[in-house]
Design a protein around this nucleic acid. Structure first.
Length: 433
DNA sequence: TCTGGGGTCCTAGGACCC
DNA sequence: TCTGGGGTCCTAGGACCC
């Protein structure tokens, strides 16, 4: 099965160890050696330092739970902008060695090393080691590196000796190595695939690749075949070298406890998500052509529907009518829900406005100016200072939610009609949309 | 493992057409 | 009333990733 003694290609996977907390520790040396987590803003552990992990803190754990386990725990809010800067520096270092670099996520990079041996006068493992060492020296955080013939194998290898790991997976060692590699190490095998494989008596990766290719296709579809080849050291997935061009969707979902069957309340949750998603959309100067609305019931069943807007939009008041329409389709009375969410898709840049024959230009302009006011108010007074009236139904449960700390302690005043208009200083007809 | 939030991609099945 | 075969597009749902 593996006749070649070494792979013709070499792909390195570089994975930063506990990235967010490592950055914090690099920036604040007094945090080094201490149990640190980030995620304070959401109340769950987004990332735990190895010191915290050693004490049993895991991701995603509720913060109060984590504090129970470890009273000395240092909780920090996630500072994504700083982490992104570190991420860019890390990528830039790898690019010095080879132009074939994929930014897989904020803390992971793939690099193709083919053809570099002659330039650097060293083997692939030595080049990979040099990259690892340079990153650690220059930005002060450790990374784990895996080197093999395919992305999937390189990723398995980088996980092997975390943190600060360095694992080379050669063709001749593959069989031995995969005989001990559990299935969930494979990027692409989630809980469902693992469960199915175990039903066939397969518990390690070697068992999977010893099956026929047709078998992999039959039970695991396209991805199954791709992984089957990748795991045998046959490269299927190339590196995606293009820089990421913005996002393809913007979504916002939120779970609420306890679950509720109150239609107004559930709808208010949904509209609030819509507001948040649109704020984000406008911040990126995008507009959406399509909206999806989804809910999850108390017993974790999900439903969703989607539809196109009559024209691309980033306006809250414009979007809300379609959201309400879709909500009617998806909501069933007598059912308790625990989550609502929206997904905005078919995103385009905001200047390419498509006016239909029946759109009134002044009305569109009015909606835009209203959104500017809304965004400006949020910047000044904080998010969700201004709401659509529907959202006030949240107030029905406000007291209860406040006890749980789900809502900020803030007085809400209903601005309607004349007061609203005067506050915002916009002509009355603009509000009556 | 009793489950947070933001994403991407795949696929089965229905509608509709020839 | 039953009815072939094939194509495309769309929708809803699921699996998986970080």
């Amino acid at each position: 099965m593996y006749s070649v003694s070494s792979f013709p290609q070499a792909i390195a996977h570089i994975d930063a160890d506990a990235f967010f907390t490592s950055v914090e520790q690099a920036l604040h040396p007094e945090l080094k050696g201490k149990p640190v987590v980030t995620g304070k803003e959401r109340g769950i552990v987004a990332c735990a330092s190895y010191e915290a992990k050693a004490l049993g803190v895991k991701r995603p754990m509720q913060l109060f739970e984590a504090r129970k386990i470890c009273p000395r725990l240092i909780c920090l809010p996630s500072d994504y902008e700083t982490y992104s800067l570190f991420s860019k520096r890390l990528v830039a270092i790898v690019r010095r060695f080879t132009p074939a670099v994929e930014e897989y996520s904020i803390d992971e990079v793939f690099a193709e090393l083919d053809g570099l041996r002659r330039i650097y006068r060293m083997g692939y493992p030595e080049i990979a080691w040099k990259i690892k060492e340079t990153i650690q020296r220059e930005i002060g955080i450790t990374v784990s590196v895996g080197l093999s013939a395919s992305k999937t194998l390189a990723k398995i290898a980088s996980k092997e000796n975390k943190p600060d790991g360095f694992t080379v997976l050669r063709a001749r060692e593959l069989q031995c190595f995969l005989a001990k590699t559990p299935l969930d190490r494979v990027c692409g095998f989630g809980p469902n695939s693992v469960m199915l494989l175990k039903k066939f008596g397969i518990h390690y990766v070697l068992g999977f690749i010893q099956k026929e290719e047709s078998w992999a296709r039959r039970f695991f579809g396209k991805i199954g075949v791709e992984l089957w080849h990748e795991l045998r050291g046959e490269k299927v997935y190339g590196l995606v070298l293009e820089e990421k061009t913005g996002c393809q969707t913007v979504s916002k979902t939120k779970t609420f406890t306890p679950p509720s069957g109150d239609k107004d309340f559930v709808k208010a949750q949904l509209i609030r998500n819509l507001e948040s998603a649109l704020i984000k959309l406008r911040r990126y100067k995008l507009q959406a052509g399509r909206l999806a609305v989804h809910v999850r019931t108390h017993d974790f069943k999900s439903w969703g529907v989607e539809a196109d807007f009559d024209r691309s939009t980033s306006s809250t008041l414009h979007a809300v009518s379609l959201a309400a329409e879709l909500f009617e389709k998806v909501f069933k009375s007598g059912v308790c829900y625990r989550l609502t969410g929206v997904v905005l898709s078919q995103l385009t840049e905001d200047r390419t406005v498509q006016y239909s024959l029946f759109d009134s230009l002044p009305k569109i302009r009015a909606l835009r100016s209203l959104d500017r006011v809304i965004d400006g108010t949020h910047e000044f007074y904080g998010k969700h200072t201004l709401h659509l009236g529907t959202v006030l139904w949240l107030g029905k449960h406000r007291q209860h939610l406040n006890q749980r700390g789900d809502l900020p302690q803030r007085k809400t005043r209903l601005l309607r009609g004349e007061t609203f208009r005067r506050r915002l200083n916009i002509p009355l007809w603009q509000i009556a949309v």
